[in-house]
Design a protein around this nucleic acid. Structure first.
Length: 275
DNA sequence: CTTTAAGCCTGCAGGC
DNA sequence: TGCCTGCAGGCTTAAA
């Protein structure tokens, strides 16, 4: 589920029910997530008021009055629920002073919960090495050029590297490369200035449109309300192996979208138009 | 140093 | 129906 657009969507859902509210109760069903939830987690948040949220890459901070933030990472299968019956694998349940119930659900337990001083959010070990936020001005042709310079790794893998740019995952890298008409196998350092000037807005518009659509839903609900995202209907490459490419006339001129495995991850692209 | 592969954990779809 | 295999949105680590 959760790449940047999904995390952003989920966070916006949490803002409306949590900001300004006090945490009346909290319970941890288990603490062995990707990393152990720290001792004292529940005591640290119960009684606190939620002041705001912040997203950084695929990570979310829930900022409490007490100068403490809860770091939330959803891993592969993480979800947040609002006012829904407890689900299997619901590891954390929070109740607000208004009686709303927030659930953190993560079957595969690749996700994480941690505490960090609010003023030190950016120093957290999971955050410190993240690259620029792709939708901010700090992510531009100059910074992208610098971070890709000399890289002998395929551009697909480079864009998945969170220290190059924070928040892209397997779906949106495939989508952005399709839009930029760049072959995912091209070595990152071999991309010319013109190609980077095309890739940059391709990344930004893909993410912006995905956020506007509420993210992409694969097999789980994305939004805390249970609503589905609908950007999966806009996918032009990801998950479309064997289907026609929208830029091409179809067979025999073009075989359509093909799938291959790169660095252990599925990649989808059009061999005719992505060079 | 850089780049690839394996591993973490569970659920689901497809093949037999 | 039931078992087995492969695959999945992320990230870390060990190995090459």
């Amino acid at each position: 589920m959760p790449e940047l657009p999904e995390v952003e969507t989920i966070m916006r859902g949490l803002v409306t029910t949590l900001v300004g509210r006090r945490i009346a109760r909290a319970s941890l069903a288990r603490t062995d997530l990707r990393w152990a939830v720290p001792d004292g987690f529940v005591q640290a948040i119960v009684g606190a008021r939620v002041e705001g949220f912040r997203r950084r890459g695929k990570y979310m901070f829930m900022q409490l009055d007490r100068r403490v933030s809860v770091l939330i990472h959803l891993g592969m299968s993480g979800r947040m629920t609002i006012d829904r019956e407890p689900l299997p694998h619901q590891h954390l349940t929070i109740t607000t002073d208004e009686g709303c119930t927030i659930g953190f659900v993560d079957p595969r337990r690749f996700g994480a919960l941690d505490l960090v001083a609010t003023e030190a959010e950016d120093s957290h070990r999971l955050i410190a090495d993240l690259g620029p936020e792709p939708l901010e001005l700090s992510f531009n042709v100059a910074t992208l050029t610098r971070s890709l310079a000399g890289k002998a790794t395929p551009i697909k893998a480079a864009l998945l590297d969170q220290s190059v740019v924070a928040g892209l995952g397997n779906i949106y890298v495939s989508e952005a490369l399709f839009r930029a008409a760049i072959d995912p196998h091209r070595l990152a350092g071999s991309l010319g200035r013109a190609e980077l000037k095309c890739l940059l807005p391709a990344i930004k518009t893909t993410l912006t449109e995905a956020i506007a659509a509420g993210g992409s839903s694969l097999r789980d609900y994305v939004q805390p309300s249970g609503e589905l995202g609908y950007f999966q209907h806009e996918w032009k490459a990801y998950g479309r192996a064997g289907q026609p490419c929208e830029r091409c006339p179809g067979p025999p001129a073009c075989a359509g979208i093909v799938r291959a495995v790169q660095a252990g991850r599925a990649t989808f692209w059009c061999q005719r138009t992505q060079k």
